[in-house]
């Protein structure tokens, strides 16, 4: 095939660079703003375009000095770790159980798939969580979304494509179903486990809707709720003024962006280790079925 013309080649490079810039720039901007001093933000009319001339960590000191943001971060970490563990446990057991033709396997699978076609609505879900006594508890953030049907399908599909002869051989050697799961299936499924863990963990970390619905006490709020309160609703950030007394108060805008940065950084930290799996057909396999 002929090589693309120079004009096409240049247009392509420009397009790729623009796309990457549009994705990356917002992150650069919030990090730069969070590191800026009040004076510099005011001098620039509110905009730090690339990097502050004299970076300062005042904003981070302010939000980590205790108070609302630190607590919200702890809550988010806790809910993410416990929630993801519960998600994975329930999804793995169900996906493994239905990865082989077992008694009642078909109706159970149908039951799961049907939930993808029909949602039961916000109000009945809300009333159910209330009726179960989960309102205003962290369990309300975890239990109603325990298994994602999509994640379940991806995992089940992966399990079904593992070499079944291996399991037959193990069974003949006297291994039970549970041992096959723990010693053969899971070690062979690292890729799919990594991807699904990332999906669940990110969903828990970003969980906003469930906190809005079910958490009444502001003291129980996870990070996204606090982020919304400070950045989007413009509430002054609850800074323990005693902790920063004597120093100039950091810029409000810098503090707001610091809260955004601490919400983003944990995702940025796990993403590079897990993203290489996305291209390995782990996901598309399930869709093509």
């Amino acid at each position: 095939m002929e090589a693309p013309s120079t004009v096409e080649q240049i247009a392509k490079v420009v397009a790729v660079v623009v796309v990457c810039f549009l994705v990356i720039y917002p992150f650069v901007n919030i990090i730069a703003t969070s590191l800026s001093s009040e004076a510099e933000i005011v001098a620039n009319g509110g905009v730090i375009s690339l990097f502050p001339t004299r970076p300062t960590l005042d904003a981070y000191q302010a939000i980590f000095a205790g108070g609302v943001v630190s607590r919200a971060m702890l809550v988010s970490f806790g809910v993410t770790v416990v929630g993801t563990a519960c998600n994975m446990l329930a999804t793995i057991t169900l996906a493994y159980a239905l990865s082989r033709p077992i008694v009642a396997g078909r109706p159970i699978l149908m039951m799961v798939l049907l939930t993808m076609l029909f949602g039961s609505g916000i109000i009945p879900n809300f009333l159910l969580v209330n009726a179960l006594g989960l309102y205003n508890t962290y369990a309300a953030l975890i239990l109603p979304g325990l298994i994602s049907a999509f994640n379940f399908l991806v995992m089940r599909n992966f399990f079904m494509n593992l070499p079944q002869e291996l399991f037959e051989a193990a069974r003949i050697d006297g291994a039970g179903d549970l041992r096959i799961l723990l010693q053969l299936v899971l070690p062979l499924s690292k890729a799919v486990l990594a991807v699904i863990t990332l999906f669940y963990a990110v969903a828990q970390w970003n969980a906003f809707f469930s906190s809005l619905l079910y958490l009444q006490d502001t003291s129980k709020w996870p990070l996204p709720m606090v982020l919304r309160l400070y950045v989007l609703q413009g509430q002054p950030v609850g800074i323990d003024s005693a902790a920063v007394a004597g120093e100039a108060l950091p810029s409000i805008q810098a503090v707001q962006m610091a809260v955004v940065v601490v919400s983003v950084v944990p995702i940025l930290c796990v993403y590079p280790f897990l993203q290489r799996y996305f291209t390995k057909g782990v996901l598309t396999g399930a869709i093509k079925g």
Binding site: L89, A90, T91, T93, L94, Y96, A97, L98, R100, I102, V103, A104, I108, M111, V112, T115, F118, S120, G121, I123, P124, N125, L127, L128, L143, P144, L146, I147, F152, G176, D177, L178, L181
Partner: peptide, 28 residues
């Protein structure tokens, strides 16, 4: 399939309680 069925119990319970019971809740 005893073990496999036991492993499916938490997942099945979840879908019944949090997907099918709210479906009935639509009676309101």
């Amino acid at each position: 399939d005893k073990v496999m069925l036991l492993l499916a119990v938490p997942g099945v319970l979840f879908f019944v309680v949090f997907h099918y019971v709210p479906l009935l809740g639509n009676v309101i």
